[in-house]
Amino acid sequence: MEVGFTHHQAAHCENGVASNLLKHNGFEISEPMIFGIGSGLFFVYIPFLKVNHAPAISYRPMPGTIFNKAAKRLGFKVKRIKFSNPKSAQQALDENLKNNIPTGLQVGVYGLTYFPDEYRFHFNAHNCVVYGKTETDYLVSDPVMESVTTLTHKDLEKVRFAKGAFAPKGQMYFPTSIPKQSDLPKAIIKGIKETCRDMLAPVPFVGVKGIRTVAKLVRKWPAKYGVKVANHYLAQIVRMQEEIGTGGGGFRYIFAAFLQESSAILNKPELKELSHEMTQIGDRWRDFAVEASRVYKNRSSKSDVYNLLADEMVKIADLEEAFFKKLKKAIA
């Protein structure tokens, strides 16, 4: 059985699934719009938590929140179901497919056999859509892939019941009611306001202040942990920033695309200006990644390299602080 479903490739999985499912239901919306309205831009450093034996840093909010916030602000409903056992999870999914409902799933990346090995880590907050089933396989639309793909029944069960942090517990979700029209300008402003609030939050682990905190840590890494571990940590920052489809800018380019689209909808030319500014900040993050990669490629041991990188992070934090203050004013 197969539901007619159009696959559109996206830069990032969660926005991509959201945008694809909404388009399927006749609600045309772009990926950057979902990202911006769902307040997808973020920065957080989680102390004491280690991911792949390195500090936990993320350039986006908790999994699921982008879609949930976008849903709330655009006025559609999303049904989310978690399962305690694989059998009922499979039954519920099959039932949905029988009723012609393409269904979003939260899955673990480690078991996704269609990914290159380098991508397959124990990261449980990936999203894809299942739109059909054959004797042996499920038909999968993974938004970060160019075209549709498949997973065997057994493999799909594995990724739905991956274990560890953010274990998906078979979670499936799909929009249940779609509004004919929604108040796009209001949703956009809400999304932007929250992003400004988060990025300017007076908390040392979040937003601009979070970036500064990490910069401080970077300075200490080589002396504290030795070059090998420091290099590994640095590579981890770049990997998180370079999560699939961010273009090296830690989601800054997607946000800039959102601001550009919003500028036309809200009829605010200043947002277009700010979009250009965000593009430049994205370029700075990109340059940072290039510099950082030189350090861990050459296994350079000079401690001032780390200081230079930290200086660059502080500069970016300053630019972002000024940027979000301006953005806050622009939509006030």
């Binding site: 490739q9 996206a10 830069a11 950057p32 970060v144 160019e146 590579a235 981890q236 770049v238 990997r239 370079e242 489809g245 961010t246 273009g247 090296g248 380019y253 997607i254 800039a256 695309a257 550009q260 689209e261 979009s275 250009h276 593009t279 990644a289 290039v290 950082a292 990669s293 861990y296 490629k297």
Partner: peptide, 25 residues
């Protein structure tokens, strides 16, 4: 798929085969 700007500075999408800093990471 990445978001990037065209000649007029407007956002569009482009496909990327890979990027060295990321490959190294």
């Amino acid at each position: 798929l990445l978001y990037a700007t065209d000649e007029q500075g407007n956002y569009t999408t482009a496909l990327s085969k890979g990027w060295e800093p990321k490959s190294i990471a």
